[in-house]
Nucleic acid binder design. Structure first.
Length: 415
RNA sequence: GUGGGUGUAGCUCAGUUGGUUAGAGCGUCAGGUUGUGGUCCUGAAUGUCGCGGGUUCGAAUCCCGUCACUCACCCCA
């Protein structure tokens, strides 16, 4: 077992072969989909001023209150490692003036939250997300959900479930909160300890409590939408109508709540049955975020890449082994290593994958390495070949081998 | 922040009621006569039994602490 000093810090991990190949593929596929919808990438810094998150996410959320990695730099500035992607994007867009009016942007990268790690929850985790700025508009919301569903499909996920709800307009919020508080207070004694706390701090969270007793009470309550304006309900209906036109399957869940404060109107969450307790692979919603003297209205979502990977694994969608590919150069005479390395370089400069062993190992060992590397072709070269100016070219697919000149060699390999 | 489970070779794990040089499979490396892979055979290397302390003639096995991993609560992607 490795000692502690070789381990990454708690809740963070090295991503290396073979997983890294899956990560690279997911990212590449995501970039392709985003491009089709006209979104362009923005890479904001991992470090932001603390205030960027305090104002936008909501000062009472756990993410802001206790989960951020924060520190002071030498100049006494209060900085944090970003816990999510949207706020940084809004800071970026707010600085762009009118150019941000119809921005469509996406990001892929690490986020940091000091939570207790568990299945599907790391302290450094990775999200990809998108934001579309614009006035409140049901078509924009539906398109965002469609984009997210498209991503899942591109990645090969089939079992995910989309749940949707509304948080109402900004003006509705107080009424909803007061209404739910009143209704729930009547059952205060029967609520679990957590929910009694939620009653004060964040009433809506009672709605998605997992405790059976609380769920029983919640079932008897009127839906959140009952406390909202007609406008909010109509807006949700409109979003649903457009979504149906796009042939997307979504379930309306009147108890769906999102954690961050900036959400308004449409909110949604995508969960996957193959995950553990942390089963949301992505979530999004419409929001209104103020940055300084500017207010940005938009709709966006984020997806947890670790969770996407877990979901893929649970659907057993791990990619099949690649077909034989590339070249391995076997040195039959170590005295000729100069020539062999030179040849390998020449092939690589021509765009070919070429491996060789530089440790002077036996031919048998080199052949084993060639087999393990998955190379399609093996070039063997020793003193005899050097004298005749030829190479042995072996096809690892069928095991056949023939003697070729340099010209023939290149012709075959570059085909 | 709270609670449960687990920590033995690179990986997956055995290790009997505490007993002397701690094991297996996989992987790695080497060999199976002259310069050839994937199968097969043979052999080899590798462990402060997570760390610290305690009990004992004796601890990988029992006790305490600690760290890490893991699952759940909480929170959230």
């Amino acid at each position: 077992m490795g000692s502690e000093e070789f381990q990454p810090v708690q809740g963070m991990s090295d991503i290396a072969s073979p997983d890294i190949a899956v990560w690279q593929l997911l990212e590449q596929q995501a970039r392709g989909v985003f491009a089709r919808y006209g979104f362009s990438e923005v890479r904001t810094p991992l470090v932001e001023r603390k205030s960027v998150f305090e104002h936008s996410l909501g000062d009472t959320t756990d993410v802001v209150q206790k989960e951020m990695y924060q520190f002071e730099d030498a100049g006494g500035r209060a900085l944090v490692l970003r816990p999510e992607g949207t706020a940084g994007m809004m800071r970026h867009l707010a600085g762009m003036g009118q150019d941000a009016a119809n921005a469509r942007v996406y990001y892929i990268g690490p986020m940091f939250r000091r939570e207790r790690p568990q299945a599907g929850r790391k302290r450094q985790f990775h999200q990809c997300g998108a934001e579309a700025i614009g006035e409140t508009n049901a078509h924009a919301d539906a398109e965002m959900i469609a984009l997210q569903a498209h991503l899942l499909k591109e990645w090969g996920l089939q079992q995910s479930v989309i749940k949707i709800n509304t948080r109402g307009a900004a003006a509705d919020r107080a009424a909803v909160q007061r209404g739910m508080q009143e209704k729930l207070s009547a059952h205060r004694e029967r609520l679990c300890d957590d929910c009694r706390r939620r009653l004060e701090v964040n009433v809506l969270r009672v709605l998605d409590c997992k405790n059976p007793g609380c769920r029983e009470i919640v079932r008897t309550l009127p839906p959140m939408t009952a406390f909202m304006s007609d406008e909010a309900r109509t807006y949700l209906e409109e979003v649903l109508r457009v979504i149906r036109r796009l042939e997307l399957s979504v379930d309306v869940d009147p108890n769906l709540v999102r954690g961050l404060d900036y959400y308004q109107h449409t909110v949604w969450e995508i969960s996957h049955p193959g995950l553990g307790a942390q089963d949301a692979v992505g979530a999004g919603g419409r929001y209104e975020i103020s940055m300084g003297n500017r207010t940005l209205r938009g709709v966006g979502f984020a997806m947890g890449l670790e969770r996407i990977l877990m979901a893929l694994a649970s659907e057993k969608k791990t990619p099949e082994p690649a077909p034989l590919h590339g070249i391995w150069l076997v040195s039959l005479d170590h005295a000729l290593l100069d020539i062999h390395l030179q040849l390998a370089q020449m092939l690589r400069m021509r765009g070919l994958d070429c491996g060789l062993d530089l440790n002077g190992r036996s031919v048998k060992a080199q052949m084993r390495a060639a087999g393990k590397s998955g190379a399609r072709w093996v070039i063997l070269h020793g003193a005899a070949e050097d004298e005749k100016g030829v190479f042995q070219l072996k096809d690892m697919l069928d095991g056949t081998q023939r003697e070729v000149t340099m010209v023939e060699l290149l012709e075959q390999l570059q085909r």
